[in-house]
Structure formats: structure tokens, C-alpha cells
Amino acid sequence: MLGGISIWQLLIIAVIVILIFGTKKLRNMGGDLGGAIKNFKSAMNDDGDKKDTDSDPKSLAQDQNNTMNKDADFSEQKDKDQKHS
């Protein structure tokens, strides 16, 4: 192949890398890389789920209603506490 990398060249590079780093270090690096990719994917999915619910008008309206109800309950409780004092 002209200008490309053959299978033999890849094998020679792999052997040199194994000799330099050792199999244990390469195994640890592979595990670390796999864990980083897994965490990245889960973070992307979490952000995607959050954006989907944020852009949903029904979900946004429900969140606003829940917040307003909590504020009203807090105000009522505060008024009751002030009357009893």
C-alpha cells in the first residue's frame, strides 16, 4: 500500500508500545480511558434528559406550579406561627 499503514507496521508499533509501557500499565490506561468514556456518556445523557424536561412546556408549567404551591404553604405556615406568638 502506498502511503498507508500496513498490518505489519501496526503490529511492530504495538510490540514497541508494549515493551515501553508494559501490559499492566496499558491495562490500567485502558480501564481509565473506558471509565472516562462511560462517565462522559452518562453526563451527556443526564444533560440531555435535563434539557428535554426544561424545554417541555408541560413540565415547566408543573415545576412553576409546584414552586408557587410551596411558597404559598410557607407563607401560610409563617402567618400561623406569627399569630401564635
Score class of each variant (00 low, 15 high):
Val17Phe: 00
Met44Asn: 06
Ser59Lys: 15
Asp32Asn: 12
Asn65Pro: 04
Ser42Phe: 10
Gly4His: 13
Ser6Gly: 06
Thr53Lys: 08
Met29Lys: 14
Lys38Val: 04
Asp46Pro: 02
Lys38Tyr: 01
Asn66Arg: 14
Gly30Ser: 15
Leu11Ser: 11
Phe40Asn: 11
Trp8Ser: 12
Ile16His: 01
Ala72Asn: 06
Asn69Pro: 01
Thr67Ile: 05
Gly3Phe: 10
Leu33Gln: 12
Ser59Cys: 02
Pro57Thr: 03
Ile16Trp: 01
Leu33Trp: 08
Gln9Asn: 05
Asn66Gln: 13
Ile7Ser: 13
Ile18Tyr: 13
Asp32Ala: 10
Gln82Pro: 00
Lys80Cys: 05
Asn69Leu: 11
Gly31His: 04
Leu19Ser: 11
Asp79Leu: 02
Leu19Tyr: 04
Ile5Asp: 10
Gln64Asp: 03
Leu19His: 06
Ile20Met: 07
Asn66Cys: 06
Asp52Ile: 09
Arg27Phe: 14
Lys50Cys: 00
Glu76Met: 07
Gly48Phe: 01
Ile37Asp: 03
Val17Glu: 03
Gly4Cys: 15
Lys83Ser: 08
Asn39Pro: 07
Phe74Glu: 08
Pro57Lys: 05
Gly30Tyr: 12
Ala14Val: 00
Asp79His: 04
Ser75Thr: 12
Lys41Leu: 15
Lys41Ser: 13
Lys24Thr: 02
Leu10Phe: 06
Leu19Glu: 03
Leu11Glu: 14
Phe21Ala: 15
Ala72Trp: 12
Lys80Thr: 02
Lys50Trp: 11
Ile20Arg: 08
Asp79Thr: 10
Met29Ser: 12
Ile18Val: 15
Ser85Trp: 12
Lys80Tyr: 03
Thr23Phe: 12
Lys70Phe: 10
Gln64Arg: 08
Val17Ser: 01
Leu19Gln: 10
Ile12Trp: 14
Lys70Ala: 14
Lys78Tyr: 12
Lys83Arg: 14
Gly35Met: 02
Met68Tyr: 15
Ile13Cys: 13
Asp47Ile: 02
Thr67Phe: 02
Lys24Ala: 15
Phe40Cys: 05
Lys41Ala: 04
Asp81Phe: 00
Ala61Ser: 08
Ala61Met: 08
Phe40Ser: 15
Met29Ile: 12
Lys25Phe: 05
Ile18His: 06
Lys78Leu: 15
Asp49Arg: 08
Lys80Gln: 14
Ala61Asp: 05
Ile12Thr: 05
Asp56Trp: 05
